[in-house]
Amino acid sequence: MEKTVNQKAWFLVLPVLVLVAFSAVIPLMTVVNYSVQDTFGNNQFFWAGLEWFKEMLRDDRMWDALGRQLMFSGIILLIQIPLGVFIALNMPKSGFWVSFCLVVMSLPLLIPWNVVGTIWQIFGRVDIGLLGHTLAAIGVDYNYTSDPFAAWVTIIVMDVWHWTSLVALLAYAGLKSIPDAYYQAAKIDQASRWAVFRYIELPKMMGVLMIAILLRFMDSFMIYTEPFVVTGGGPGSTTTMLSIDLVKMALGQFDLGPAAAFSIMYFLTILLISWVFYTVMTNLEKREG
């Protein structure tokens, strides 16, 4: 759409600016403040420069958490994006069953995150959980509280359970926007199923898929509650993601300086990767017109 230049539009944006300034800028400045200062208690602070940043960058603990976090987000994207597209392709075409599938698929998305954790914590327990009990019955040695591999599998399956529907819903919305004429043309050309997917469906889904990738990346990179409830970051620290580590540091040990430096680097990392996704996305939108 053609937009007109109008500087007065700033007034319409003003409420958002004030609100976000209060709920984002002020807190963020506090974090920046802490990150460059040190304290001996009693609210006496003095300048520490970039000491905390240097210390955090030397600290293996953060690098390990970052490694785990990248691995987690990577696995999540690799599973959820193709699976979500696959599910969307298999959605019923019309009628009652569409609504039914949509409602059931959205259900996991509206469950409070700690309840999601609780559900899987129970589901996976060998004594009272369906999954754990079944696995034990068929002779699989499965215990997510003591075996790091089982813990990882549990939180990944949990996240797939929790969020794949989001990708599927987005991909479905993209598919719905393809006019029937495209499929008829493909049929006349006797295009294979793969060709239809590759040259019609996939390009048409690109825009929404980018949103899906962006959202799934951001949220999986910030994940806290679900793995915290299920594994508490253990066994050991094998499932301690960045957020879990950060909360432990900031609210648990009250190490304000290092935690603040950690926060800033954490936020910048997300921002950088998201900015890349966002740029690609808006370019795609432009190309489509």
Binding site: K3, T4, V5, N6, Q7, K8, A9, W10, V13, V16, L17, V20, A24, L28, V31, M218, F221, M222, Y224, L242, S243, I244, L246, V247, A250, S263, Y266, F267, I270, L271, S274, W275, Y278
Partner: peptide, 24 residues
């Protein structure tokens, strides 16, 4: 509807808040 000074930057800046980890 409108173009105004810094609109694109503002829009992205708003989105960055969606990317802010609650833990931070």
């Amino acid at each position: 509807r409108y173009h105004f000074m810094g609109d694109k930057h503002l829009f992205f800046w708003l989105l960055t808040n969606r990317m802010a980890p609650p833990a931070v």
